[in-house]
Amino acid sequence: MLLHLVVARTLYNGDTIFYALSFILLMWIVKIFAWKPVTKMMQDRSNKISNDIDNAEKSRKDAAAMAEERQAALAGSRVEAQTIVKDAKENGQQQREQIVTQAQTDAQSLKDKAQKDIAQEREDALASARNDVADLSVEIASKLLQRELKADDQKALIDSYIEGLGEQHES
């Protein structure tokens, strides 16, 4: 069949070998100079791109997480500030109430003490008055007893007594 095709020419069977060998040699040279380095570089590049995509994804996630964290921290500090203010207010309130109560108690105790002192004083005064009355009674009684021995004297005694009373009233 081959012979029929190239019937007008010579059959260059040597060319077949030449081309086959040169093609195989070319394949070998291409492999060493181009194929290996280029495909390696293409592989490296595709790896790098895929890594870069992964890294970008990761850093995006990190950034999102950090923003969320910061947001949470901000909200937390706001709550904390509110708590502090509230606590301070409560403390102030409590302290005020305490002071007022203290003052009221103090005033009450002072008042009680004063009242007690007054009562004591009155008691003392009454006691001394009572003593005086007793003494006076005893004195009167002794004077009366002295005068009873004589009727005349009794009359004089009463008079003097009345006189004495009158003097007492006048004085």
Binding site: T10, Y12, G14, D15, F18, Y19, S22, L26, V30
Partner: peptide, 21 residues
């Protein structure tokens, strides 16, 4: 070596070979 070679094919093939390299 008992094989027939054509000059044109050898030269052209060598040129293609070199161009490819």
């Amino acid at each position: 070596f008992g094989l027939t070679f054509s000059v044109a094919n050898l030269v052209s093939g060598a040129i293609v070979f070199l161009l490819a390299i």
